[in-house]
Amino acid sequence: MRRYGLALDLQDDPVLIAEYEAYHRAVWPEIKAAITASGIEQMEIYRFGNRLFMLMDVNDTFSFEAKAASDAKNDKVQEWEQLMWKYQQALPGAKPGEKWVIMDKIFELI
């Protein structure tokens, strides 16, 4: 099992943030199915202000490249992603079109 931490910012608008949270309280079943089919075993998203932090635990079959390729062919995932861009904004330093950015782990208490 591997773990990844990712970050993303939301538009700094309380109404949009509330809408985004409402969508995530009732994520479409097709989105959940695409997430689990990719090898993601556990996913949590936390928010502070307009900053999001995602924690993902993945199995050995998971790869970001394979997930991106699968998502690109999935019309429902594309619809979801297009809708989410209304609420999201790229982090400073993100590549053009890049949403969630993988964070570097700098500490672990063992």
Rank of each mutant, 00 (worst) to 15 (best):
W28N: 04
I31M: 11
L55P: 01
S63N: 09
D57K: 11
D57H: 13
E65H: 09
K73E: 15
L91G: 06
I40N: 04
A72L: 09
F107M: 13
Q82S: 15
P92Y: 11
L52M: 09
I110G: 08
Y4R: 13
G97C: 11
L83K: 14
D60R: 10
R3C: 13
D75P: 14
P92V: 05
D104H: 12
D9V: 00
M43R: 12
N74P: 15
A22G: 04
Q11W: 00
Y4L: 15
T36C: 02
P14K: 02
G49H: 09
Q78N: 15
L6M: 12
D104G: 10
E98Q: 15
D57P: 07
K105Q: 15
R51M: 08
K73G: 02
I35Y: 02
K99S: 15
I17K: 01
P92G: 05
L10T: 00
A66Q: 14
W85Q: 10
K76C: 05
A26K: 04
L6E: 08
E81V: 03
L83C: 05
I17A: 04
K32G: 08
Y23A: 01
S63F: 08
E79D: 12
V77G: 01
E65I: 03
Y4A: 07
R25H: 11
N59L: 11
Q42M: 08
Y87N: 02
E19R: 01
L8C: 03
E79M: 07
A37E: 14
